[in-house]
Amino acid sequence: MTDEQSRLLGPAEVRALAGELGLRPTKRLGQNFVHDPNTVRRIVRAADLTPDDVVLEVGPGLGSLTLALLPAVRAVHAVEIDPVLAARLPMTAAERAPTLADRLTVTTADALHVLATDLAGPVPTAIVANLPYNVGVPVVLHLLSQLPQLRRGLVMVQSEVAERLAAPPGSKAYGVPSAKLAWYASARRAGPVPRAVFWPVPNVDSGLLAFDRRDPPPGDRAEVFRLIDAAFAQRRKSLRSALAGWAGSPAAAEDALRAAGIDPSARAETLGVEAFAGLAAARARSSQGH
């Protein structure tokens, strides 16, 4: 058994830790723990990390992925909402990776509300996480908004969520999550994850989503996101109709769409984030002119 293999958690170690903590994984917190060393090694490889990276891990749970990350990067920030799990994680690192345990910082917090100021030590440059199924999209969008130094990420989410987040304009899965993620980053699917590597076994398929930060289009993000929400709230309608409330009237929506070079009869799923940003800017110019 190599040092690396002895460090990582297998099914027996995961169940032993859970038993020690009296842990029963909850659906409310989206807890499904990875117990397969090959899977966490694959995730770390796919994340394309460098030894200088500082990783933010959300929902580390019992530490399966954490232990695989520690040898690969300069530091790991683990954000865990469950105080029992958060208290045990540094001990697990000290027991199974004693020479690397000082690279780990654990913060007990809800990742949906965590801010840069909540994270002590070096600033995270990458997200690598097995995200709870029920909050995958809002967590990714929140962290990208709050941590501008995050350059890339690899997250495990429900397979259909990965499909939606990576979907390009014009595709069936394209919608609010894909358009908003595109404001921050380019995204792609990075492979499936079998159900059998989790305990308990989930009743949905999982997949990996990779993304790389890019410069956002010009414009006010909050206004562009309001526009995206309005456009997709009635996605079967033409943008002239769907955006009547946002613009003030169907005629005002049509004027803004034409000013932005967009066909008023088009639908929301045909627009990329740059087009939404251009439309928001056209509407702002029109409003200032009145």
Rank of each mutant, 00 (worst) to 15 (best):
L70Q: 02
F198P: 11
A281E: 06
A179G: 08
R283I: 04
Q149A: 15
R45N: 01
A233W: 00
P202G: 10
D82M: 12
K237P: 07
V40Q: 14
E254Y: 06
L21Y: 02
A75C: 01
S6N: 13
G207I: 11
R221Y: 03
V137Y: 04
V201G: 03
T39F: 12
R236H: 12
V204Q: 01
S286T: 05
I127W: 04
A179Y: 00
L279D: 05
Q31G: 10
G272K: 00
R28E: 15
L69W: 03
A281M: 00
L154I: 10
G278P: 11
V139E: 03
A266E: 05
I127L: 14
H35R: 14
P122G: 01
T66G: 09
G175T: 03
V161R: 07
L271M: 12
G175M: 06
A260R: 04
R151A: 15
A256T: 05
L150I: 15
R195Q: 15
P11Q: 11
R258I: 08
G153C: 06
I262N: 08
A251M: 08
G261Q: 10
R24K: 10
A280Y: 00
V44P: 09
P124L: 07
A46P: 06
Q234W: 02
H35N: 02
V201D: 07
S171Q: 14
D263V: 12
S206T: 15
V139T: 15
A120C: 12
T125L: 05
D36W: 04
A47N: 04
D36L: 07
R74Q: 14
A282Y: 01
G261L: 10
R45H: 11
G289I: 07
P11F: 12
S287N: 13
G248M: 11
E95D: 14
V197W: 09
G19I: 02
L239P: 03
R213F: 01
G136Q: 03
R195Y: 11
A93S: 07
G63F: 03
E20W: 01
I228L: 00
R189E: 14
G170L: 09
D52A: 14
A179S: 10
S287Q: 15
E269H: 04
D52V: 11
A72T: 11
A256R: 02
T105A: 13
E13K: 08
A87G: 14
A86P: 12
P218H: 05
N32F: 12
A109D: 04
R189C: 13
A16P: 09
L112R: 14
L17T: 01
A233S: 14
F211Q: 00
S159C: 03
R188S: 15
R221D: 01
Q5D: 15
V161G: 12
A231Q: 01
V139I: 15
G61W: 07
D82Y: 08
L112D: 06
G248A: 09
E13N: 06
G272Y: 06
G121Y: 08
V161D: 09
R28M: 12
T117N: 04
S241H: 12
H77P: 04
L227P: 05
N38W: 09
E95H: 03
R258L: 09
P90S: 10
P124N: 13
P122I: 00
P132L: 09
E80V: 13
L150T: 08
L143D: 01
T125V: 10
G245Y: 00
K27R: 15
